[in-house]
Design a protein around this nucleic acid. Structure first.
Lengths: 155, 155
DNA sequence: TTTGCTGCAAATAGTTTGCAGAGAC
DNA sequence: GTCTCTGCAAACTATTTGCAGCAAA
């Protein structure tokens, strides 16, 4: 079974466990979020559903994304630019590296994150619950196309 | 001169350098942002100005916070919960550790951040421009008041 | 059958914009 | 005097909610 398929099963399982009804709308939304390629926004999930479910209401998408988020099966990525995107494929905190030119998102495993958490705990005496790390930059492909620093306004 | 005072001068200086007019409204907004204790939202800045500038428009606050942000003199803190807050006191990226109980915000210097940036560069080949790191947890004071794990729903 | 879910439309919150007069330079 | 800035109100975007009918369990 693929990871995406497992994620779909996990979401549906949590819904059942919480005595939530398994409606066709929920299955469709879960299917998209279980994949989450491209980190869709609510609007984006809604658009993807338009062809198969022309009557699907945007409110229904909002309600169910929130429900799955509250069940811990979908991660909300509140990016600094204000856009809310969702990830049901890796529903635990993880770093996002975003290219400001092509908007590509990478999600590397960072071994230094653990050291950083330890340093936070040592310096603040907090009990750490969750975190969000987003790094902005220019990806390799975009650097090739137009090297950084060549774009200037008239002097 | 205090750091806050220096920050105020820096903001006003950037405005002048950009040939923006120095209006009483701008001075008042700059003064609040230069301090930025409590990381105010736009609404919050507006409220702080109500007593001294009862005619100040919320739109004016929005316009000027955005202007100062575009000049690099104010940092926008797009927290994952969706609230936009601003910092004109430390207008460069820095970590925020937020207590989910009392909403207190700490801003420790993290030496591990540099290692993390290096790891990001090594693993993604990005040119890193900026970043945002927010950690959520429970602060020391709140842990004392009510130890974590004691709050449960009925089984 | 029962209870929760959906679609619709209206409400709400946060932010942006057009415009005419006011004010900084 | 010129040109930007401000206040006001309306517009806009993203999200939430009330309600009546519908459908999963």
């Amino acid at each position: 079974m693929t990871h995406t398929k497992k994620r779909y099963q996990a979401i549906i399982g949590k819904l059942k466990a919480g005595h939530h009804k398994i409606t066709p709308q929920r299955m469709a939304i879960a299917e998209i979020l279980a994949d989450s390629k491209g980190h869709p926004s609510v609007e984006n999930v809604y658009e993807q559903l338009q062809s198969d479910y022309p009557n699907m209401s945007l409110a229904t998408v909002y309600r169910n994304v929130m429900l799955m988020k509250s069940l811990g099966e979908v991660l909300e990525l509140g990016f600094p630019d204000g856009s809310n995107r969702y990830d049901g494929n890796k529903p635990y905190p993880h770093p996002h590296i975003i290219c400001v030119r092509c908007r590509k998102i990478m999600e590397p495993d960072l071994s230094t994150l653990e050291d950083m958490t330890k340093e936070v705990i040592r310096k603040t005496d907090f009990t750490v619950l969750t975190h969000q790390l987003t790094v902005f930059g220019v990806c390799r492909d975009c650097k090739k196309e137009k090297p950084a620093g060549n774009h200037k306004d008239k002097p």
